[in-house]
Nucleic acid binder design. Structure first.
Lengths: 225, 225
DNA sequence: TCTCCTTATCGTCGATCTGACGATAAGCCT
DNA sequence: AGGCTTATCGTCAGATCGACGATAAGGAGA
């Protein structure tokens, strides 16, 4: 049906939209490009898929390289394949969405001049079509928060209801009633698992600490604002 | 940062999961392969992305070639890039989901021996990893029916509430109360647009005919079963 | 034409869920 | 001890849901 001469060769890369909630803002991990094209411009972290590596594995590898942390939530976002998206050659990029709790400091990648968490509201022009990819990733994260347990991925291994609520408030940019949020979130079967511990790290009355439960879909869904 | 010698060359293809509702079943469009590997095996329609064509354009082109119809709903599903998914070479495939009303007869593609609508329940082994791709497409369609207006894509340009309900019943494999379904679906702002016409093609009392409205997200969502 | 059968459409009812918000609990700070 | 902060529980009216009764409006056949 086809032979190697039948198809044009493509480069395949992965690009990562890594989001976290820190200092009252939804932030994305960006790297500053050290080479042309777009030298000095911010870009999404990413890199080439290797010859004997699956695309998913390439994304997981890059994520560990960039954040220094394994085990983060990682899911495919979309694939971008316009002919001119990279000026040098035909590149198809598979974008992934990763969610992280507030990590210490981004690890400077091997081939990136600098890496930084940037509030998504403050992101200016990015290299290639990365602004579009980042926007798609943010939109996906916002949408999935409604009907999946994804919000807990932004929290550490143990967290309070209030910390989870702040994740939702920051990602959606709304304010939620603490009492109703508490009722809904503790009422969803399998979302939260009580640890029995409590903490007063937020000030005020100590709050119960929870772990992520097994549930991945939320029924009923949380509703935006 | 990188040069043509830095990256391994990949072939990039598009694969289509084309779904329709016909004769009481959710059916997928399959083609029988005329060449090795998997000669004679059913597979998803698809083909190579051309050198100066975007990946999305390639999917749209293949969809028209296979169905003979333009303007169908088409969205990216996922990208599959395991190293050995094609035994001959490294192929990354971008899969798309398309929904179609009950079309006349599938058009035999140029390089496919035969094309046919096959109920998804009856699909056996497929070439490559196409069984997995098909399963992902079916699952996506089922999920999106809940909270988007996608169900109307399975209907013709004008349809009755009962025809839309049968789509949901068949795709989800459940039975829905006609009265409650009618109330919900006509209550969702912007989902349906009355034509003023009616038809008795389903027998019984004539039913009002509707067109797709502008809404694409459904709030509140329909609920499965 | 009249009766029956089929499907469409409208209403009703109790259970449940939602959002707004009052009340109380349980820490820390001074 | 008194006040401040946040956590957690309750209440209540309105919206929504599923189950299902009632009526409408065609066609088929006696």
């Amino acid at each position: 049906m086809y032979s190697p001469s039948d198809f044009p060769p493509f480069a395949v890369t992965v690009d990562l939209v890594v989001l976290t909630v820190r200092s009252d803002a939804l932030c994305a991990l960006l790297v500053r490009r050290g080479e042309a094209p777009y030298r000095g411009r911010w870009a999404l972290p990413g890199g080439f898929v290797r010859e004997f590596e699956s695309v998913d594995d390439a994304a997981a590898r890059e994520l560990v390289e960039e954040t220094g942390v394994a085990g983060l939530h990682l899911e495919q976002l979309a694939t971008y394949g316009e002919p001119r998206r990279d000026p040098r050659m035909r590149v198809v990029s598979v974008a992934y969405l990763a969610l992280a709790p507030d990590l210490p400091v981004p690890v400077a990648g091997t081939d990136a001049a600098a890496a930084s968490w940037v509030p998504v509201e403050d992101v200016g022009a990015l290299a290639f079509d990365h602004a579009r990819i980042l926007a798609d990733g943010v939109e996906r994260a916002r949408a999935k928060l409604e009907y999946t347990a994804l919000g807990t991925e932004f929290c550490g291994p143990e967290f309070t209801v209030a910390e989870l609520r702040r994740v939702y408030e920051i990602v959606w940019g709304v304010s939620l009633d603490p009492r109703n949020f508490h009722r809904k979130v503790t009422g969803v079967e399998g979302l939260l698992e009580a640890t029995g511990e409590s903490t007063a790290r937020d000030g005020g009355r100590p709050a119960a600490l929870y772990r992520r439960g097994g549930a991945s879909v939320l029924y009923p869904p949380l509703v935006r604002g």
